[in-house]
Design a protein around this nucleic acid. Structure first.
Length: 661
RNA sequence: GGACCCGUAGCUCAGCCAGGACAGAGCGCCGGCCUCCUAAGCCGGUGGUCGGGGGUUCAAAUCCCCCCGGGUCCGCCA
């Protein structure tokens, strides 16, 4: 028995029919079962049946006539004993009607044995690293990060539920210039970021964010004033003046939000310093070498920001398996090793007098003949990609160089088959360069199994978010407003409930509203985030699903446990019940496909439709007041299965599922 | 200038990868439904040159080409 699974995995009745049908058709047509499974659809009209197969499609490929195929498949279905009650041929489609009462009976049998909803497990599980969020530790998480986090965490949940072995990681970008700027600000203030923010009663990442924005904007203001003095023509002057006005306005707003009396200290210091840039440069260079006191200074800032991140993340149900420090990669010579390998490589060149990798040559030599690599690397046709510079003239490393080392580290640390980077679409070129560079250095497996899961930005209706100016809608305050809005509603509906319960449920609703809204739009399209509109908790929102789930829970609570012996399964055939049950039973297949396609939005769309189906049924077919015992218990079974399914789906999306709200 | 992504109802979005059975939801707007399992709900109505044009096909929102509009990227930034 060793090495083999202890028991055959038990599929729900619907998955069984769907899967077996796909296999059977695949056998008859010589197609791939997976492909056939995609083509099995739900007919647009109920009269046509429950499942349908586009026979013309298979006929075209195999040369067998549709009615011939129809005859063969029908025969095979009859022999197989699938829960199919009727088949028909209409307009080139083979339509199947399922034996729902029999499926319901099987389902009840499973539930009685303690079986619960789950996804069909993938045949060959992979070890997958999902890196997501990885926000710069210099300001609070804003809505852009929230989308990244929601996508990343949901992907991890989906893939895990499908049977893959998942490792989630957060990349701490502590080596770059931006962190050095924040550190410079704290150096001027001479305070410890974490303890100072505690003293202020402020979330540490918010404090860091304020100091960073103030420092950065002050420096920029000083620089611009200098440029303005040197500017030649009027056109140049007015352009600079306009830019300066913008920064001064941002500074005024930052001063207004001064959490203590820090503003003047930073601003005056920066103004009085001859060369702020050199100061920052010094911090950066010394940190890359791991020298004190810069090391403690930067770590202090970053630790404070991360502390704030963890608070926000745990609020929306996100935890990471590992936190990786970029600096560790530099200090541990992993980055140095990559640079050395590059120098020894046939793709090493000097570009603009710096050490670089000849990306065009890699494309020319390695992608022309290697069909698989071409496909997986996803190189756009006419894209000219410049060589990749590895090291600055001052000897410090560049982001992409460090990312090469990090990519290899992720594969190695988890012994991963695949690494998914959830990163914005604006980083496409960089991510492509990364894959090509790794390919050039001989890391073919890593290059081909590094997936850039890209998503478009979150925009606000009027303004453009800018961490540098301290202008963004941060996740914490969005959650706070959502919670306040939810509280009104919960209190209204539960006047006797105690405050603690109201607070808990409202928090769950806030989290659900936020995560759902960020996951339901497919990744490649931009999300326009209107804080006002998210406060609407009606249909097509997370709270709508939560509410529907809570309704089902309410019914089951009143009904009590199901009397399985009394169930009349034929009662499932009543049209609306049948629709609801069937749609509910489709869940495992839908969720599995969403996982395989890495398309969480498909699950979101399905759950909305499922909730609609439940709500319209709910309105007309009462459970508790049903006089006929057989029908009542049948309905209770449907409600209970729906409740279980919805809860499972919501959990995959990271939307909490309160039982009352 | 080049490349990539997006463009479906007034608004927010499914459907496109794997072409086929009347182009779907929600919001909004109009009209109904709480002595009855939570009205964050339900029922009905309103609303669409699927950005435009060509092509492939028996069949195109879906595939190919061109164009238009919006976004993004082309750093010794990250």
């Amino acid at each position: 028995m060793a090495g083999r699974s202890m028991s055959e995995y038990i599929y729900d009745p619907y998955t069984t029919v769907h899967t077996k049908l796909a296999e059977l058709v695949a056998e008859k047509t010589g197609e791939d079962p997976q492909f056939v499974s995609w083509l099995i659809t739900v007919p647009p009209r109920k009269e046509y049946g429950d499942l349908s197969l586009p026979l013309m499609r298979f006929a075209r490929k195999t040369g067998v006539k549709p009615d011939e195929l129809y005859r063969e498949i029908t025969e095979a279905i009859n022999k197989s004993g699938l829960d199919v009650s009727e088949v028909s041929l209409e307009g080139g489609y083979m339509n199947l009607k399922l034996d729902v009462p029999r499926m319901a009976e099987k389902l009840a049998g499973l539930i009685r044995k303690g079986w619960s909803v789950s996804l069909p497990r993938i045949d060959k599980p992979r070890r997958i690293v999902v890196e997501h969020t990885s926000a710069n530790p210099i300001h609070p998480l804003h809505m852009g990060h929230a989308r990244n986090t929601s996508i990343g965490d949901t992907l991890a949940r989906l893939l895990r539920a499908r049977g893959h072995i998942i490792n989630t990681r957060f990349y701490i970008d502590d080596v770059g210039k931006q962190v050095a700027i924040a550190a410079y600000g704290f150096k001027i203030l001479g305070v410890d970021p974490l303890s100072e923010s505690r003293k202020l009663g402020m979330k540490p990442d918010h404090f860091v964010g304020w100091v960073y924005a103030t420092t950065f904007s002050s420096i920029e203001a000083v620089d611009l004033k200098k440029q303005l003095n040197d500017a030649g023509n009027d056109e140049e002057r007015s352009r600079l003046q306009e830019k300066l006005d913008g920064i001064m306005a941002a500074l005024a707003s930052l001063k207004e939000r001064d959490p203590g009396s820090y503003f003047d200290k930073i601003f005056e210091h920066v103004t009085a310093t001859h060369d702020n840039e050199a100061e920052i440069q010094r911090i950066m260079v010394r940190y890359e070498k791991g020298e004190e006191p810069e090391k403690s200074l930067i770590r202090g800032v970053v630790d404070a920001a991360l502390e704030g991140f963890r608070e926000s993340l745990s609020r929306i149900g996100v935890v990471f398996d590992d936190w990786d420090w970029e600096s560790e990669l530099v200090w541990s010579s992993r980055v140095g090793k990559i640079i050395q390998e590059a120098k020894n490589s046939r793709y090493y060149i000097k570009y603009k007098e710096a050490d670089a990798i000849d990306i065009p040559k890699i494309i020319k030599e390695l992608l022309q003949t290697d069909e698989e690599a071409r496909k997986k690397i996803k190189l756009p046709r006419g894209w000219e990609i410049p060589p990749l510079i590895l090291v600055r003239s001052d000897g410090t490393t560049l982001y992409t160089t460090r990312d090469m080392a990090y990519t290899l580290y992720k594969f190695e640390a988890f012994n991963a088959d695949e690494v998914i980077n959830v990163i914005g679409a604006d980083q496409r070129l960089a991510q492509l360069q990364l894959r090509l560079a790794l390919l050039g250095l001989g890391y073919r497996k890593e290059a081909l199994n590094l997936i850039h899961y890209d998503y478009e930005m979150v925009r606000l209706p009027g303004i453009r978010m800018s961490g540098r100016r301290g202008r963004f809608v941060d996740m914490d305050s969005i959650l706070d407003s959502l919670k306040i809005r939810a509280e009104e509603e919960v209190r209204k509906r539960n006047p006797d409930a105690d405050a603690a319960w109201i607070g808990r449920v409202s928090e769950q609703i806030a989290v659900g509203a936020l995560r759902f809204t960020l996951i339901r739009t497919s990744a490649p399209r931009p999300v326009v985030f209107d804080p006002e509109k998210v406060l609407n908790l009606e249909e097509n929102t997370g709270p709508y699903l939560q509410y529907t789930h809570a309704r089902a829970c309410g019914i089951m609570k009143k009904h009590g446990s199901i009397d399985f012996e009394s169930i009349n399964y034929e009662a499932c055939n009543e049209s609306r019940r049948r629709n609801l049950l069937l749609m509910t039973m489709r869940y495992p297949m839908v969720a599995a496909k969403a996982a395989d396609d890495m398309a969480p939005e498909d699950l979101a769309t399905y759950l909305l439709k499922l909730a609609d189906e439940f709500n319209s049924w709910y309105q007309v077919d009462p459970v508790i007041r049903e006089p006929d015992v057989g029908a009542r218990e049948c309905k209770a079974l449907i409600v209970d299965y729906f409740r279980q399914t919805m809860k499972h789906g919501l959990e995959l999306l990271g939307v909490p599922a309160p039982e009352r709200m």
